[in-house]
Design a protein around this nucleic acid. Structure first.
Lengths: 109, 109
DNA sequence: ACGACTGTACGAATATTTACGTACGATCGA
DNA sequence: TCGATCGTACGTAAATATTCGTACAGTCGT
């Protein structure tokens, strides 16, 4: 299956913010930002999510808001952060969000 | 009436993002960022919102997520952006979001 | 071909969000 | 004091978001 991703110019900041404004999705984005190759299951396991179908929903939200790319490869679905597009359209936004997530994490421990 | 605002340390980035991830609230924040003194009604009029009670709801979301301050003054409610707190806790985030909103606006015209 | 694996689609249940009307409390000016 | 103004509280309705189970389609290794 092939997905429709918004073009860089079609990305909207309110969509990005509401996509990232959910703990599970923000955590998923942090995993993708951590580097390495990821598919749906590997992130799901890392986050401790129980249902695959729940995660499918979150992937869709992230994909349709322009935050991630989903590329089928064999039976897997490779996931990447659209860092180039986000940095080009919203300079500094993604980094500020990721840094903020680290701040919160440090604070709650 | 006096409101409870979260301390700077209690602000969480997912709360901020989901608060800003709504077109009306993002627009309201842009108005506050524009400078000048604002109360609930002045922003409501500027945004063309119909119901005051709807806006009350959005003010609560923005206040409880730590994005704005609401300070009663006479019969009005003075609204200010918590720029200092947000900049201190999440450097660059607010500016990136506001710049992003301008990018989107320019693109859709 | 077979079974295991990856991920989606769909429907359902639940929870949350959004929007609005109405009523009310507090404040201000005359 | 009276009437107008500011904003909230509450209830309600509708829309959306979240989560999960089940079923299924496609891919891989043997």
């Amino acid at each position: 299956m092939r997905y429709r991703h918004p073009d860089r110019d079609q990305i909207r900041v309110d969509g990005v913010l509401s996509a990232l404004g959910h703990p599970v999705r923000l955590a998923a984005v942090r995993v993708l930002d951590g580097g390495g190759e990821h598919n749906c299951t590997s992130v799901l396991v890392e986050l401790g999510i129980t249902a695959k179908s729940t995660m499918t929903h979150h992937w869709r939200v992230l994909r349709e808001s322009g935050v991630i790319l989903q590329e089928p490869s064999g039976r897997e679905n490779l996931l990447t952060l659209r860092r180039d597009d986000l940095d080009a359209r919203y300079p500094g936004l993604l980094d500020a969000v990721l840094a903020g997530a680290r701040t919160d994490e440090a604070d709650s421990r």
